[in-house]
């Protein structure tokens, strides 16, 4: 009698574990659609690419375009700026200028300060972040201030000599 009850008890424990496991897997799976629904929607993902016509940007001028909702600075650098940047390695996050551009006259960087996400203002020699005073040069490299890294270079490619697709 006792033995039989023990077997029953054991079977029930196994059944409970099995049912509990199957149920827990189901609950976890049921959470996924809700979590996933908070990710970018298809129409947001479809806007991941931005096409920019550069022909209207004069030498020495800058244009700001939106890419995935973020500002992207496109600077048409003049020969003096190119020369000056080629000689420098930047500041606390050193990087040669050629690793930061595809065509030397076109600098394309994400216009978000790597410190806390403000949009830096253009100056003669680069950018100055209004929030905490980080200074960037005309290659988007941080020279001074609290920013830890250079301005990010987004993925982009030239589809025509004066047309790029960012993303």
């Amino acid at each position: 009698m006792v033995g039989k009850e023990g077997v029953d008890e054991e079977r029930r424990d196994f059944l409970l574990t099995a049912t509990g496991t199957v149920g827990a897997v189901g609950i976890a799976a049921a959470c996924w659609p809700f979590i996933s629904s908070m990710n970018p929607t298809l129409d947001v993902q479809a806007q991941a690419n931005t096409e920019v016509d550069l022909s209207g940007v004069a030498a020495g001028a800058m244009r700001t375009v939106a890419w995935r909702g973020k500002p992207v600075f496109i600077v048409h650098r003049n020969p003096e700026q190119i020369a000056a940047m080629a000689q420098s390695e930047g500041g606390k996050d050193p990087a040669p200028d050629r690793t930061r551009v595809q065509e030397p006259q076109w600098l394309v960087v994400v216009g978000i300060c790597t410190h806390l996400g403000c949009v830096p203002n253009k100056t003669e020699d680069g950018w100055l972040c209004p929030c905490h005073g980080s200074v960037y040069d005309n290659s988007g490299r941080v020279l001074q201030g609290p920013a830890p890294r250079n301005l990010e270079v987004p993925p982009y490619h030239f589809v025509e000599p004066t047309k790029i697709v960012i993303g």
């Binding site: 659609p33 996933s36 629904s37 929607t41 298809l42 129409d43």
Partner: peptide
């Protein structure tokens, strides 16, 4: 938009 573009929006 929920039915077509949101991930699992149709399900919710």
């Amino acid at each position: 938009h929920i039915m077509r573009d949101v991930n699992y929006g149709w399900l919710i």
